[in-house]
Design a binder for these strands. Structure first.
Lengths: 192, 192
DNA sequence: TACAAATAGAACATCGTGTTCGGAAACATA
DNA sequence: TATGTTTCCGAACACGATGTTCTATTTGTA
């Protein structure tokens, strides 16, 4: 049985659709892209699209999975210098720099609501583990709010950076993020 | 000519539509609400809707205008204790508390992208004036990034607060916001 | 060649959008 | 009350996007 080759054919179709969507998002923004646009751009039949994905959001999320998998591989390839959430943010800035087209389509203004919500959720989960190991807190700011704040402000800098076409290197962006957030966080959780 | 009374009829129709949209947003979220839903809820004819508003977003923005007008009146009614952006944020937390239904529909998760983008833009403009008067900065973080950061982290706390049904009083939320952001901001712009 | 998997695309039903238009209702004026 | 004007209602319509179904075709395998 030639399963391998057939799989390749399927993979190729999926990839054509994914890339067509990314290109169209960068051109028109997520909301304005229709399924018709995507299958025209990808030269894929209508029924073929629905054989692979449920709807536009499903295709979009498959792009996110690609991103997430790449990022976690990037995480593993780096030495674990654990200095709180800011080592994590640095890796993400760096990864965004190396994949800025993908990031811009997904996390930029054009990407719309769906993806930002997913990235936010994903990062909040990653962050929770970092925060758990941190020392006792003074109870002024609930950990829930703290996590929400850290993720949101990071995403703010990231999307600003992407929408402005990366005017600074990743390390500089992370320094800004750290300088802005670290003093406040330290004052709130108390350095251990 | 009975212009006044006729105007009142128009105003009433607009208000019916605005309130119907707000209620539906709280129930289903902005994206899921169709124009058909709105005019059914408001008992307004289809053509009447299009006589008043261009489309769903237009109606949505008219709700935002209501909010903005109310907020600016709230601003004027308060004594101007100028301690940077945090007096502004406090007033907004307070105003959100007194109008939480409206705020939750517009700035909560349900409100979607459109409104958040508008509020963000509006706040960034307000903030720019506050930042201008602030002292010299050390140039580590560009003012553009700083403004983006301050607005985004404020919105993060605000939307978290609204989506969790106001578990703390406005003053407490503003304290959190201030404690988280003030140290970093001071370190970056240098206190004057 | 024979066979199976994957694709193309036409046809279709469905739904939401935005426009048009004739008649009904509300309101003002006299 | 009678009349004219403004506003509203809702049906009918054209349009475009969605998602499904079906048949024919292509591609790759044995």
């Amino acid at each position: 049985m030639g399963k391998k080759v057939i799989d390749r054919r399927i993979q190729r179709t999926r990839q054509l659709l994914q890339e067509a969507l990314l290109a169209l998002i960068l051109e028109k923004g997520y909301d304005a892209v229709t399924i018709q646009d995507v299958i025209d751009r990808a030269n894929v039949g209508r029924s073929t699209f629905y054989a692979h994905f449920q709807d536009k959001e499903d295709l979009f999320l498959s792009d996110f999975e690609t991103l997430r998998a790449q990022f976690e591989q990037h995480l593993l390839s780096q030495p674990a210098t654990d200095e709180g959430p800011w080592s994590l943010s640095l890796m993400m800035f760096q990864h965004a720099q190396s994949q800025h087209r993908l990031y811009k389509a997904l996390a930029g203004k054009q990407g719309g609501n769906v993806m930002l919500a997913h990235i936010h959720k994903y990062l909040a989960a990653l962050l929770r583990e970092h925060l758990k190991s941190s020392g006792k807190r003074k109870g002024l700011v609930p950990p829930d709010v703290l996590a929400h704040y850290l993720v949101s402000s990071f995403m703010a800098l990231l999307t600003w950076w992407l929408d402005n076409d990366l005017p600074y290197p990743a390390e500089r962006m992370n320094d800004m993020y750290r300088q802005l957030t670290e003093p406040g966080v330290m004052a709130v959780i108390g350095d251990s």
